[in-house]
């Protein structure tokens, strides 16, 4: 069952448009959302969180409409936005008491535990926290709400590698409950390699790829070679020429050749090769160049 179901969502800023977004976030799964800066990831998240009005479309939260179940939906969803959504001049103690009174399921024990774990000082105003500390604090607040749907807008950006690992671990821990759903938007695709179940790629306000991570990485190979012939070129996606030869993505899992290195790609490699300047989008049965798809209005 879908934790979050988005159908035909259209958001129009005038200068930017989210166009016909269809997205199903399954319960018990982590969906990674990747895309270039300004592709509409944060707009999509704000629209899901009802911080942005849409022109058309529908969003169902655990199968429920927002208008008819406003309080229930808001109780079941938590979000880490790209910036804190509360007064950063307040001290954590004040925000904690506010959250505790607003969210009936707020887990005080977990709050204390995580504050200690991330060594966040209780006597410092949140505005005085570093960017990474603010992110961690927002994540703590979101997790302590015990939501069924957790939306994360770059939760690991600005966090040091050690704490990033801890954050990823926390999200995994949160997913032990199979009723929970996570949408994880990030530029640090390494995190998605570790925990994501599904990968969604956005470009220019549209979803260009929505696939299971294992199927996605399993279906492609990243190839490094000194030279490239016409046959290889015809199957290659996003050919990049470097100092030591060529790198490209291919759907041909049996690709072999002398001096050729073939490996399973990471999400980052898939992302870079698919959306690079000469990248090729290979969704479904199509195998069109990225630019070709754009010209045809497919992207």
């Amino acid at each position: 069952m879908e934790g979050l179901k988005i159908t035909g969502l259209v958001v129009d800023y005038g200068t930017f448009k989210l166009d016909s977004i269809d997205l199903n976030l399954k319960k018990g799964c982590i969906t990674g959302l990747v895309g270039r800066n300004g592709c509409g990831k944060s707009t999509l998240i704000k629209t899901i969180m009802r911080q942005q009005d849409a022109v058309a479309g529908q969003i169902l939260y655990n199968g429920k409409k927002f208008a008819e179940n406003e309080v229930e939906v808001l109780n079941s969803i938590a979000c880490v936005f790209d910036a804190p959504h509360f007064n950063i001049m307040a001290k954590p103690k004040r925000i904690y008491s506010l959250y505790k009174s607003i969210y009936k399921k707020f887990d005080s024990e977990l709050y204390e535990k995580l504050m200690k774990k991330f060594k966040l000082p209780d006597n410092l105003r949140i505005g005085k926290y570093s960017f990474g500390m603010q992110k961690k604090y927002c994540l703590i607040l979101a997790l302590c709400q015990r939501p069924e749907i957790l939306i994360l807008d770059e939760p690991t950006s600005g966090i040091d590698p050690f704490d990033r690992n801890e954050v990823v671990g926390l999200i995994q821990e949160y997913m032990l409950d199979e009723n929970n759903t996570v949408l994880f938007s990030t530029h640090i695709t390494e995190d998605l390699d570790k925990i994501a179940d599904y990968i969604v790629i956005m470009e220019n306000g549209k979803i260009t790829l929505d696939e299971e991570k294992n199927a996605l990485t399993g279906n492609y190979r990243i190839v490094q070679c000194a030279d490239i012939n016409d046959e290889m070129r015809s199957n290659a996606i996003g050919i990049k020429k470097g100092m030591f030869g060529y790198t490209f993505l291919t759907k041909n899992k049996n690709v072999t050749g002398s001096g050729m290195q073939v490996k399973i790609p990471t999400i980052e490699e898939i992302f870079v090769h698919m959306l690079g300047e000469n990248g090729t989008y290979s969704g479904g049965n199509q195998n069109l160049s990225y630019k070709e798809l754009q010209n045809r209005g497919g992207l």
Partner: peptide, 13 residues
């Protein structure tokens, strides 16, 4: 200008 705590808190409109 959103987001704001006021808009994500579970209270009625």
């Amino acid at each position: 200008k959103k987001p704001s705590i006021m808009y994500v808190a579970p209270i009625s409109f």
